[in-house]
Simulated scan of single mutants.
Amino acid sequence: MDFDFSDDQVSLRDAVARWVDKGFSFERRHGIAKAGGRTREVYGELAELGLTALTVPDSHGGMGFGPVEAMVVMEELGRGLVNAPLAQGALMAPALLATGPAELKDAWWPQIADASALVVLAHQERAARYRLDRVATRAVAQGGGYTITGVKSIVPAGDEADAFVVPANLGGADDDDSGIGLFLVERSAPGVTLRGYPTQDGARAAELTLANASAQLITTDGLAVLQAAVDIGIAALCAEAVGVMDRLLAITVDYMNTRKQFGATLASFQALRHRIADVKMQVELARSMSYYATLRLADPEPRRRQAIAQAKVQIGQSARFVGQQCIQLHGGIGVTDEYIASHYFKRLTMIEMQFGDTLHHLGEVSDRMQETAGALV
């Protein structure tokens, strides 16, 4: 099987890498994080590269690229530790709106493409854990439209977003997956309240409270669309994690080649070289599963969801191993806020928890293997 990237994909990767090297130094990122993590300006710079238009159809001002191009971009952004919400705003949001009415797409896809609007998914609820099919937020038909009441937690870049895609229950029980709809709620709508806060990885999130907030219906078949969009987000996270791990490994190797102990560099000790070899193996395992997740995004739902869960398990395991080993090889300096490695470690920790932690996705993999696991029947 040929895993080489096309010329266009290589050019795209190189363009992102050049921007990271010239425009997003660690000092800039650290300053943004210390100032609260607002990255709308950075998001605008990504728009100038065309990245916010990456998956928007060309009929609506986008580039019409697919999952592989998104993976290439996210891996490079991971290497640079770019904390702008590109995956949420440019990859997931277009997919969430794709099944909506034409007037909704005509209004929002061009704004997503040129970054004049940031649209993010607001789906997490306190009682739902990582389940997408448990929704307590309620939608009520009213006056030819809908109003929504509920609370969504840890909305990425929530207090910087212009609109939210909100899953809401259309009348069934909280765990009735047949009654979930998707709605677009504008930030300026009456009844919308936001409480923003910085996250430990230098980005931002918000609590979104909706009190009879006006909303536009995207689709009444919300769960299937939500699952597909979250899978896109997980595949993007996997690619980002590979970039983060790649760079953290390089930082650690460079440190070991310069730091001396007992009159010799750390890289000269065989036991430490073996540990770096183990780290490299975990990075490559993660890379292969990132490719696997991306290539399975076009598969039918059961196969796609299983592949995504398998990839997230490997990414979570690799991220934990790589992060812990690299920080330990640094010693005390590795956890200081002024040193770059600690920020890569924090991002890996956040990636492991987003869209379901390793244990959650291990359960997902197990559930989908029940028909083939155990003794032959």
Rank of each mutant, 00 (worst) to 15 (best):
K34Q: 12
I308F: 00
R13H: 04
H60D: 06
S288P: 05
L376G: 06
D2Q: 14
L194D: 07
F321M: 08
T149N: 07
P101Y: 04
S59H: 13
A206L: 06
V72T: 09
Q111W: 09
M289G: 01
L376M: 07
Y146W: 13
D201T: 11
Y339W: 12
G171C: 00
A168Q: 02
A107F: 06
A206E: 05
V244N: 11
S6C: 07
H274L: 13
D7V: 06
A173V: 01
A113P: 00
A122V: 03
V20I: 09
Q261S: 10
M1R: 11
D106S: 13
R275V: 11
R259L: 08
I112R: 00
G179R: 15
N212I: 08
L121R: 01
A107V: 02
Y292I: 10
G31Y: 14
V244E: 13
A128Y: 03
V56G: 06
A239R: 15
Q200R: 15
D4N: 14
P300C: 08
S178Q: 12
A113F: 01
Q124H: 02
P156E: 01
Q142T: 07
G78N: 09
G332D: 11
T52G: 05
V16L: 02
D133C: 03
R134L: 09
S342T: 00
V135D: 01
D337P: 06
G243M: 08
V20H: 11
L132A: 10
K152C: 06
L248Q: 13
D133N: 13
G89F: 05
R204I: 07
M1C: 04
R79T: 08
K280W: 14
A236V: 10
T137D: 07
A161S: 12
S6I: 04
V242W: 09
A33R: 03
